[in-house]
């Protein structure tokens, strides 16, 4: 009795096994094992910074294309790029490391609020219903959509200034905050040698007098920086200065010149007392070593700072 049962069940098992084998052969999905390997290497945060749906979709795109042209994992940076290139057997596409920069100076002290917003705490919503607490239609609304968008915990709101702060260590330059900011305040800029950056912390395109009415640290479009810059890195358009980070050589002449303090220089030691006229070596050297390809550990190229 038991034997019959075992035999019948065994037979059924064998029949199904044969059927399943042929079905599996018929409907086999061929997937490149490389996809799995690459997906393993990618950060796995699914941040969407590459423009794909997630890390696996990106891995598929890599394999489909066979090289890395035009595909870049901003969150993974150089390290991941190298690993992926190794797996794909191509040269990695190297680009300068970037970091998110908040281009607004409208802190509680600089841009005094004239009214209070108590609606839904969402920048996109606030942007659609009113100009902002100080009246500046370009400035940060301070409701933290960028903080919510950041997958890496690199953004936080400074309770004192009411502005978002970027943690350079954590920021992977995935660009999620750039996309989410309804006012386009956050920009991805070159991380810079030794993390040093000079940028205009303002987006105000109003004429100077109006801009100043809203915010004491606004760019008034006076053009002093444009004239001062020895490298032609600064352009004033629509009453707003913009520093091209590919041309800027971090001399900081514009910072000293700006009458409102709208130009920010970060991670610099304090300026030395003005003995020597702005040393030409100070600006030359970065050109020679130009590519911060090895910017992971930048060499101390600029001893005058």
């Amino acid at each position: 009795m038991i034997l019959t049962a075992v035999l019948v069940l065994g037979l059924i098992g064998v029949i199904f096994a044969i059927v399943l084998y042929f079905v599996a052969q018929k409907f086999k999905v061929l997937e490149d094992p490389l996809i799995d390997e690459i997906a393993e290497v990618l950060p796995g945060a699914n941040c969407g910074g590459c423009g794909k749906a997630g890390c696996r979709a990106m891995a598929e795109a890599f394999v489909k294309q066979g090289n890395m042209d035009g595909l870049k994992c901003p969150a993974g940076g150089e390290e991941v790029a190298k690993k992926v290139a190794e797996l794909l057997g191509c040269t990695p596409e190297v680009s300068d490391p970037m970091v998110a920069v908040v281009r607004c100076n409208g802190s509680c002290g600089n841009a005094v609020s004239k009214n209070n917003f108590d609606g839904l705490a969402d920048c996109a919503f606030a942007n659609s219903v009113y100009a902002g607490e100080s009246g500046c239609t370009f400035g940060c609304l301070g409701l933290g959509n960028c903080v919510k968008a950041c997958q890496f915990g690199a953004l936080s709101m400074d309770p004192e200034t009411g502005l978002p702060v970027v943690d350079e260590e954590k920021c992977t330059a995935c660009g999620a905050c750039v996309k989410t900011c309804p006012r386009g305040i956050i920009e991805l800029r070159k991380k810079g040698i030794k993390n040093r950056r000079v940028y205009v912390a303002c987006r105000n395109k109003e004429k100077g007098a109006v801009a100043r009415k809203w915010c004491s640290a606004a760019c008034i479009g006076c053009g002093k920086c444009e004239k001062t810059c020895p490298f032609g890195a600064i352009k004033v358009e629509n009453n707003l200065a913009y520093i091209d980070f590919n041309l800027c050589r971090l001399c900081r002449k514009c910072v000293a010149e700006c009458p409102t303090g709208a130009i920010h220089a970060v991670n610099f030691p304090p300026l030395p007392p003005k003995k020597e006229p702005a040393d030409s070596t100070a600006v030359k050297e970065p050109i020679e070593t130009k590519a911060p390809e090895t910017a992971k550990e930048p060499v101390n190229i600029n001893p005058t700072y």
């Binding site: 609606g119 839904l120 969402d122 996109a124 919503f125 659609s128 219903v129």
Partner: peptide
């Protein structure tokens, strides 16, 4: 809850 605000935002999206 600011439901109307949320719906307005949703409509815009």
């Amino acid at each position: 809850k600011p439901l109307t605000d949320e719906i307005r935002l949703g409509k815009a999206k």
